[in-house]
Design a protein around this nucleic acid. Structure first.
Length: 271
DNA sequence: GGGGTATGAAGAC
DNA sequence: TCTTCCTACCCCA
C-alpha cells in the first residue's frame, strides 16, 4: 500500500529494527548485488521519508533510496531469516530482524548531492514537520490544471497517492476537475489540513481510513465494506455504488492512466 | 496457464 | 499521450 503514510511507517520500522546496527545485506534476486555488497556490514544511522521516497542513511554518507512504485512491498520478520520466497531484491538483517524488499520501482545508493537533488524536486510532504503548505499553494493557486491532477504531482505535494487524493477531495466537497487557481487559498488550507490529519492517521493505523464515524456503514445500518486495500473509504474503488453520504452513484473516470473516483452529488461542479 | 488489476513515475514521442 | 518497468494475486478457463 505504497502511499506516503506507508513510507513513513517503513522509515520508523527500519530505525526501530536496525538503527545503530551493522546490518547484513544481500540481494537474493541478484539485481541489487553490487549495492547489497556495499551495504553489507554498514551501520544504519538514519531513516527518513519524503513523500513516497524512503531514504536510509548509512555510515560513510551514502543513502539507500527506495521507491516502491505501485507493486513494491516490504515484508519484515523476526528471528533468523528463512530462505527468501519469491523475488527479493534486497534483504537486510540485524538485531534479530530481517526485512525483504520486493518489486521496487527504485532501489539504489545515492551520494549526498544526489539526495539533495531528489528532495529539491519534491513538494512539501504533509507528514513532515518541515512542510510548508504555502509552497504548494504557490503552484496550485496559479495553475489551470485540475486539482485532482495537481494532488498526484509529487513536485506539488509529496506523499498523497490515488486513494488520498480521491478521499480528501470527497471530504472537502471539491469537484476533482476544478482548476487549482479556482480553489482559493482558504479551501486549499482546509484541504491541506485534512491531508495532514488523514495521512497522520494512516501512519498510526497502517491503512487508509477516511470515513467519519457518523458515516461508517455500521452507523448507517449497512454491512462494513470489504475491499482489498483494507481501509474504510468514501469513494475510492466504489464506482457505481451509492455514496455513503448522499446515495448518488460514485463516478469514475481515467485521468492520466489512473482511476479517479468522486461523488457527483457531494462534489458538484463549481458554477 | 492466461488475462486483468494494483496505492507510481520516468522517458520517449 | 503512450510505453515501459516492477511483482503478486485474483478470476477464469
Amino acid at each position: 500500500m505504497p502511499e506516503g503514510h506507508t513510507i513513513h511507517r517503513l522509515a520508523a520500522e527500519h530505525l526501530r529494527m536496525f538503527g545503530g546496527l551493522a546490518v547484513a545485506a544481500s540481494s537474493p534476486q541478484g539485481r541489487f548485488a553490487e549495492g547489497a555488497r556495499w551495504l553489507d556490514g554498514r551501520v544504519l544511522s538514519e531513516a527518513d521519508a519524503h513523500g513516497k521516497h524512503l531514504l536510509l542513511g548509512f555510515d560513510d554518507d551514502r543513502t539507500l533510496h527506495v521507491h516502491l512504485g505501485i507493486y513494491g512491498k516490504y515484508a519484515f520478520g523476526e528471528g533468523p531469516a528463512s530462505a527468501p520466497v519469491g523475488v527479493v531484491r534486497l534483504r537486510l538483517e540485524g538485531g534479530g530482524w530481517y526485512g525483504d524488499l520486493r518489486g521496487p520501482n527504485t532501489c539504489e545508493l545515492l551520494e549526498p548531492g544526489e539526495v539533495k537533488l531528489l528532495r529539491d524536486r519534491l513538494g512539501p510532504d504533509p507528514l513532515r514537520g518541515d512542510a510548508d503548505p504555502e509552497v504548494a499553494w504557490w503552484r496550485v493557486g496559479r495553475s489551470r490544471t485540475p486539482i485532482a491532477v495537481l494532488l498526484m504531482d509529487q513536485s506539488v505535494v509529496a506523499g498523497p497517492g490515488n486513494i488520498y487524493r480521491a478521499e480528501v477531495l470527497f471530504r472537502q466537497g471539491i469537484d476533482p476537475r476544478l482548476p487549482g487557481r479556482r480553489l482559493g487559498a482558504r479551501r486549499w488550507a482546509a484541504l491541506w489540513d485534512d491531508l495532514v490529519e488523514l495521512m497522520a492517521a494512516g501512519v498510526r493505523a497502517g491503512r487508509i481510513d477516511t470515513v467519519r464515524p457518523e458515516h461508517m456503514p455500521e452507523a448507517m445500518g449497512r454491512a462494513p465494506r470489504v475491499d482489498g486495500h483494507g481501509g474504510e473509504v468514501y469513494v475510492y474503488r466504489r464506482a457505481g455504488l451509492p455514496c455513503l453520504v448522499c446515495g448518488t452513484e460514485v463516478a469514475t473516470v481515467e485521468v492520466a492512466s489512473r482511476n479517479l473516483f468522486w461523488c457527483p452529488g457531494c462534489q458538484p461542479p463549481a458554477v
